[in-house]
């Protein structure tokens, strides 16, 4: 098996507001035997700047890739936005010489050169492709067989297919399989692959909140006890904003929203406190009492 060593790319949103995702990831990674190395230095992945300028997006992403190349390590990102952007830019710069030359002219100004020697993966892709389901199964100490949950993938882990090339974007199964390893049942629901709306919250809140409400109700309707996310932005949309959505639509959900590594961590036998449960906005006591 390939060596499980990665440079951890944290991005902006996770250190800004979503520490529980990082805390729980580090816990489960260690247990599985994934070695996470800190980025010596990094900047914004580039995605938030793409609407302003495609060129600065390319330059910012490429700069991160160059730092990883200097370390000689593949990258693992927790945010699908970061993972998707870095993966895509890495791919197009490797394939398109003209574009690579153009970006390298920018990078030369800061003493760097993109060479195309590393890979970038999202955390769940590392689990599915590099670690493998059997090895994760071996770390489960407390199967969560009493739980029924629903997944929400996060667009940039799957799409656009031509740049990402992971799982089946129309009918994704990888996160489901990773959830079922914990012993929990993963339920199907309507519009599973639909966006949470978070990327436009800064310009229009009404539409994303309606989208999020729609998903929450589809998930509630199939009887899931929790929703499982793998993106800091999706998580904020469904967890942090859930009380607002409840007030806005005069509708109670009370649906716990966990980061996938929190679910996995519980099944490994870690305590909720060790997995950053105190940061979650929606109460998880009912969920936790169902598994103890």
């Amino acid at each position: 098996m390939a060596e499980l060593r990665y440079l951890l790319f944290l991005g902006c949103a996770i250190p800004y507001r979503v520490s529980a995702y990082e805390i729980s990831t580090r816990k489960v990674a260690k247990k599985i035997g994934i070695e996470l190395i800190e980025m010596p230095e990094y900047n914004c992945c580039g995605l938030p700047m793409e609407p302003i300028s495609y060129d600065i997006m390319l330059a910012l992403a490429a700069r991160n890739l160059c730092i990883a190349e200097q370390q000689g390590l593949n990258m693992m990102a927790l945010c699908p936005g970061c993972a998707g952007t870095l993966h895509k830019v890495n791919k197009i710069l490797k394939e398109d010489k003209k574009l690579r030359d153009a970006v390298n002219r920018y990078l030369k100004e800061v003493g760097l050169e993109f060479k195309g020697t590393i890979e970038v993966k999202h955390f769940i892709r590392v689990l599915a492709d590099d670690v493998g389901f059997e090895r994760i199964k071996g770390t489960i100490e407390r199967p969560l067989s009493a739980l029924k949950v629903a997944e929400h993938n996060g667009c940039h882990v799957l799409r656009p297919a031509k740049y990402i090339g992971f799982d089946d974007p129309e009918n994704p199964v990888m996160l489901k399989r990773l959830i079922e390893i914990t012993g929990a049942k993963c339920l199907d629901y309507m519009d599973e692959t639909e966006c949470c709306g978070a990327p436009i919250v800064g310009v229009n809140e009404k539409i994303p909140l309606q989208l999020a409400r729609n998903k929450l109700s589809h998930i509630r309707d199939v009887g899931a006890q929790a929703m499982i996310t793998i993106c800091p932005f999706c998580h904020m949309m469904f967890d942090v904003n859930q009380p607002r959505i409840e007030r806005m639509f005069d509708e109670a959900f009370g649906l716990s929203v966990l980061h996938y590594p929190q679910l996995l961590g519980l099944a490994m036998g870690f305590s909720p406190a060790e997995l950053g449960f105190d940061e979650l906005r929606v109460d998880t006591s009912k969920l936790l009492s169902a598994i103890t």
Binding site: C155, H156, R159, E194
Partner: peptide
């Protein structure tokens, strides 16, 4: 123009 969420569907 600013309402696309870049979900890539």
């Amino acid at each position: 123009l600013w309402l696309c969420a870049a979900c890539f569907t």
